[in-house]
Design a protein around this nucleic acid. Structure first.
Lengths: 195, 195
DNA sequence: GGGATTACGATACTATACGTTCCGTTCTTA
DNA sequence: TAAGAACGGAACGTATAGTATCGTAATCCC
């Protein structure tokens, strides 16, 4: 295991490294996690299989690193909960429509159900991705836009859920147009402590 | 292709047929769609591979028939939208907690993203499963509990989404306790035309 | 009841595809 | 220029899907 700096000899190609990660993401989107093969990645990346095994011991750590290359949710802080949420969910959907995320995520989520190794990877990642949303809701509570006893996780699920369901069950692209109504509907329920 | 009735000779064993379907569901829950092998099903069911291939040409139609054996959502009609929805979602969760559905569904949904054959199967099934929910909402509209211009699909997603997200990403059994708050929150938003 | 017919479980077989390792070559450093 | 490490490609062993075949068991029809 020679890290850079110690060594004489030919250094590892950063170009190959990136090509492998890119190919992994592409194939992950095309065929899914379980049908992803190291051989396929090598061919797509134009490298030998040994070049992959020299860097990653197995498929899972490779997929982990590739998945973490996908951009995260950009936090919005406009001073208004509704605008924050709408803006963040718009970015969210643009992300899904412009990256392999829309196909990669369902595949990983589906695999998560029976692959405990993948579960260990995946759960922290999904929790991480919710954080900007949670923080926006917290700011709303602080500003008095939302009740103090709001269940933040439930609120986040109420907002993310409808979009996730459409992504998972009804094809690929989700129209960003639906973000407005979803946030309005959800917030109308969340903001009023009792009817 | 001899259907029953035409033939002399030993009839196909209905016991083996059912054992194959049961084994398919079990393995589907344990290892997922893509890792499901006909050989594995044969071993689990205690039948020869030929017995399976004699009935199903490939893995997909077998999975289809097995999946369709899982029970559907029981419709509730109490005369009140909120109660209808709460009752139906309770059944929904009990179904998930007592059948392999909680692991089978994410696996199929994940596979759906890159398997067009499975997509063709899966989309009508999911649409079908929403129908009782949609009808309950329609009754609510008719009774004046919900606005006439309600987007039924959006409303259904708003209610199912939060539960689905928890099932897909947290894996553990979902506490039926959350149904009440979810329906209350969602309906509070849906029922009031404008804040 | 007996013969014909079909399904049964089990096993052998072929082709394919995968993970992993090995090899001759290329690149970089000292 | 020599040494060392990574490179792409190819070779090797393993596993699995799918098919064919075996002897046996069950059912129908005469």
């Amino acid at each position: 295991m020679s890290e850079a700096g110690t060594s004489a000899g030919r250094p590892r190609s950063e170009e190959a490294h990136q090509a492998i990660l890119d190919a992994t993401l592409e194939l992950l989107a095309e065929v899914g996690f379980s049908a992803l093969t190291v051989e396929g990645v090598a061919q797509r990346a134009g490298v030998g299989k040994a070049t992959i095994y020299r860097r990653w011991a197995a498929k899972l750590p490779l997929v982990i690193e590739a998945f973490n290359q996908l951009p995260g949710l950009e936090e919005a802080d406009t001073g208004n909960v509704v605008d924050d949420l709408k803006q963040m969910l718009q970015s969210y959907l643009q992300l899904f429509n412009s990256t392999p995320l829309a196909t990669v995520l369902p595949s990983l989520a589906g695999e998560r159900a029976h692959n405990t190794d993948l579960t260990a990877l995946f759960d922290p990642v999904t929790k991480q991705r919710r954080q900007p949303l949670i923080r926006a809701l917290e700011r709303g509570v602080e500003r008095g836009e939302l009740p103090k006893d709001l269940d933040l996780d439930l609120a986040a699920d109420l907002i993310v859920g409808p979009i996730a369901v459409r992504l998972f069950f009804t094809g690929r692209k989700v129209n960003p147009r639906i973000v407005g109504p979803i946030v309005d509907l959800a917030l109308r329920g969340l903001a009023n402590p009792r009817p």
